[in-house]
Design a protein around this nucleic acid. Structure first.
Lengths: 327, 327
DNA sequence: CTGAAAGCGCTTACAG
DNA sequence: CTGAAAGCGCTTACAG
């Protein structure tokens, strides 16, 4: 496998590497290089199947035109869509995007950040699985541009894009009450320190008439299936008339479990995150919907701003509204 | 934002860059470098927050330890899961992975391949949206290691991993017939030249007692929603007792449309691709399931073999079996 | 046990 | 209008 370099083109044509570089980077006209020469160079480049070596270029230029993105798990539709939105916006602005999965593992997340940095990314978007901001402070220390999405740290003065999780679930619970549901359980993923999850739980509790009525069931993220089965048993042993699942994974697992057992639940299900598949789910679920495209767009524009402004940049915390979809 | 280099460490310690490089790359012992010196270097590296510049390293070494992956759309769960499987296997073998979406656009696919090549990837996995293999021949010409997945080209002598699409859908149709369904329609995504789609259609037709009974409805990939609505109308105007959707996107769209209209179909639905969400879908759908993890694993091991063997490599076409899930 | 030097493939001031 | 040279940050023979 042979790759051709600037030198190959230059030698074949009897010109200098510098000239070839200029032509291929579209700087020939401003440097007043002979049109004929330009044509010859371009033809030869095509003929030799020239592909510029980004490593050499990046090393020389010092920038990569590449952004990094870290999400917990891209096979989760929510993050899949988010990645797509982010990628499209990034490529619109001329940036490449490298996507990585942390799989909810803090150590892996830090490792990935370092790996991305060593690839000379110019900025980073993170849906973090970290417990707190401490491990990200080396980024702020070196003034590296990044933005937190989906999961944020309140006391961390950096760019972020999230949704109003508290208000979202409070809105959802209010709706449940308005249709006469008063004994409401909440199924949550653990760890619960994830900001989005924590806020959703608070929103749930805030709407209960009697805080002691709170029934909070935790399901570990690494074993949702059996966790949900236990949760369902607990729910059935009490007199519950509605269940609020704090994310789509829990809701999907719950629906699957109910269907597998052939149970027709006598309680209403409410879910944070709306997915198209809920349109055909049985039993019907109402949902609190996040503006995924908007999260993607905002995060990229925030990041690109930061990259361009460099030191003068002032962090912004964007919080987007959620919708309520009643089914 | 300051990054430290080998030089910074070397100067701070009064040693050479070479020594620092050796220590940091774990080659200090084999070169018999003083344990004390090693320790000092490592400490200083941590203190200065040293992150190696992969561009410089890649340029020097000539390899990147990075593989590329191109899929049509990562927000499609099937590809999301496939990416995850591929990423995990790749990282197990010590490779990074750069994932890109072609969005079913041939031109974009070629652009992405070139971009990945310029990032010095060592190998590439493609679920191609190209109409034929012509545009990939420059890869074989320069003996660049790559493997096709999901969508393959029959006459193209390269590594590939796919499933037995023909047998899969034939198996599915046989099952429909065994439960008394004889007027079977097939809804397909277009373009139909995609190998997987084409084979699934052939499998469908092969099982019809009367080839003239074939009812093939095409839905364009860029407008599934209204395409499906039209398809449903057509189906209802005929006396159809089963519908075969050639992929999960079509099935999901169909289920959504039916639920939106509140129609209880009087025909059975069969889908290629099994998704967890079908467990709670209403109406129930039977599915032909692909071994996603296995596709991921096999593709990576094929690719890594090719990379290691270089010129002596003999292409392999792996075809995996599908399962039938009856609901 | 350690250092000086070359070179990977590019781009960019500088010189003519 | 074009070329020679320096240098980005690494690694690796080679020398001592």
């Amino acid at each position: 496998m042979k790759t051709s370099s600037l030198k190959d083109i230059a030698e074949a044509l009897g010109v200098s590497k510098a000239l070839v570089s200029l032509v291929l980077n579209g700087k020939a006209d401003e440097r007043g290089i002979n049109k004929e020469t330009q044509l010859k160079v371009k033809e030869k480049a095509k003929e030799l199947n020239y592909i510029p070596n980004q490593y050499a270029r990046g090393l020389r230029i010092g920038k990569s035109n590449t952004l990094g993105l870290i999400v917990p798990d891209i096979s989760n539709v929510f993050y899949g869509k988010l990645c797509k939105a982010i990628e499209m916006k990034a490529s619109e602005l001329g940036y490449d995007l490298i996507i990585s999965n942390s799989y909810e593992d803090s150590e892996r997340e830090i490792m990935l950040i370092n790996k991305l940095l060593s690839k000379n990314i110019e900025g980073l978007i993170i849906a973090s699985s970290l417990e707190n901001e401490k491990e990200l402070e080396f980024l702020t220390n070196r003034k590296f541009p990044f933005v937190l999405i989906d999961r944020v740290f309140d006391d961390f003065n950096v760019d972020s894009v999230s949704v109003s999780n508290f208000e979202g679930s409070s809105k959802g619970i209010k709706h449940l009450k308005s249709i006469g549901k008063n004994k409401i359980a909440c199924i949550t993923i653990s760890p619960v320190y994830i900001s989005s999850v924590a806020e959703r739980i608070k929103g749930y509790i805030s709407e209960l008439d009697n805080k002691e009525d709170a029934l909070l069931i935790q399901v570990p993220h690494y074993n949702i299936e059996t966790g949900i089965e236990n949760a369902i048993q607990q729910i059935e042993s009490k007199e519950i008339d509605a269940v609020f699942c704090v994310n789509n994974n829990l809701t999907k697992a719950m629906l699957r479990a109910l269907n597998k057992k052939g149970i027709q639940p006598n309680y209403k299900i409410l879910s944070f995150d709306d997915l198209e598949v809920f349109d055909f789910a049985h039993p019907r679920v109402s949902t609190i919907a996040q503006p995924i495209e908007k999260i993607g767009e905002k995060s990229i524009s925030l990041l690109v701003n930061h990259i361009k402004q460099k030191d003068s940049h002032i962090p912004q915390k964007i919080i987007l509204d959620t919708g309520l979809i009643i089914r």
